[in-house]
């Protein structure tokens, strides 16, 4: 097809948005609400994940070194722990560090410790597990290191958190999937109504010899244009809503921290990816929805 005719069809598609302003507005509004719902749900899920990660980060393994282990063995244990990808924040506590900590805990009774002939505290390592679902496996690996006496792990805490995370992930995925399906159904019905209103125009084009591609292109452009506008609109509204919640969060920081929420993801961190995703999703829904809805009117 000649460039001039492609340009003509693209212009025709964009001008149709204004010519059919009522149906365009209906499609725009439905797309806007659908995308707004989905982007708010995505932001909610991202923040829930942050909360879960913050809570999970409080787990701690205590690795006791065997009494009488050599410096080389301690260095080996340290080396193995630091190179284990399932562990993070590995810290070494010497016998002296451990005794000092214990002395602090004893407070006014700490003088009793002065009567000890020998430091009874073991050398220890503290570390956090990066993936709680692998805690048992990680503990088994550490227990197998030469010179390790014992590993203490918060199995119940980890099990409970893994269950909560799986439940939260399942519910949020179901909510998101439902929202997406409902959005697609509503959007496609609205677009179908819009295309139905112009079925006569489509049939005329067929009767005078237009190919399906020629007829679809302006509708495709029109649907995509409305979708991009709706995506940008949904992004703007998400920004306003999110900023309001962010302000509320700032005013009641201590309250939120009780629930493990130490900070929402700042909107500035996701501003451009969210705009791109909203516009892309809007364009895809608008364009594909329009073209699919045209199908039966092209059979002339």
């Amino acid at each position: 097809m000649k460039t001039s005719n492609v340009t003509y069809l693209i212009k025709k598609g964009i001008s149709s948005v204004w010519k059919n302003i009522v149906m365009s507005f209906a499609s725009f509004s439905i797309l806007l609400v659908s995308l707004l719902q989905v982007s708010c749900a995505v932001l909610f899920i991202l923040n829930v994940n942050i909360v879960m990660s913050n809570i999970e980060d409080t787990n701690e393994l205590t690795i006791y070194v065997k009494e009488g282990a050599t410096d080389a063995q301690v260095a080996h244990i340290k080396d193995v722990l630091e190179n284990n990808r399932d562990l993070t924040d590995v810290k070494y506590y010497s016998k002296e560090d451990a005794l000092d900590d214990f002395r602090e805990d004893m407070q006014e009774y700490s003088e009793l410790l002065d009567y000890l002939e020998e430091n009874p505290m073991p050398e220890t390592f503290l570390a956090r597990v990066t993936d709680l679902s692998k805690i048992r496996y990680t503990v088994d690996v550490i227990s197998g290191i030469e010179g390790v006496e014992q590993v203490k792990a918060p199995y119940e805490f980890a099990g409970a958190l893994v269950n909560i995370r799986n439940t939260v992930t399942g519910i949020t995925a179901a909510v998101l999937a439902t929202l997406i399906v409902v959005s697609i159904v509503i959007v496609s019905n609205t677009i179908r109504t819009s295309v139905f209103a112009r079925r006569n125009e489509i049939s005329i084009m067929k009767y005078v010899g237009a190919t399906n591609g020629f007829i679809k292109l302006p509708f495709f452009v029109e649907g995509m244009f409305i979708g991009i506008l709706a995506g940008a609109g949904a992004w703007g509204l998400t920004w306003v809503i999110y900023d309001s919640i962010f302000a509320l969060f700032g005013d009641n920081l201590s309250l939120w921290q009780m629930f493990g929420l130490y900070g929402l993801i700042p909107f500035s961190d996701i501003i451009w990816p969210l705009l791109a995703i909203n516009c892309a999703a809007g364009a895809l829904l608008g364009a594909v929805g329009t073209v699919i809805s045209m199908g039966k009117y092209l059979k002339v």
Binding site: K2, I204, G209
Partner: peptide, 24 residues
């Protein structure tokens, strides 16, 4: 008639030439 009512007279006629991929 089956003309596209929102188009101008010129557009209704030029449309079939666009379909035939004629030049501007």
């Amino acid at each position: 008639f089956r003309l596209i009512q929102d188009y101008t007279v010129y557009e209704n006629v030029s449309f079939v030439l666009r379909i035939a991929d004629q030049s501007n």
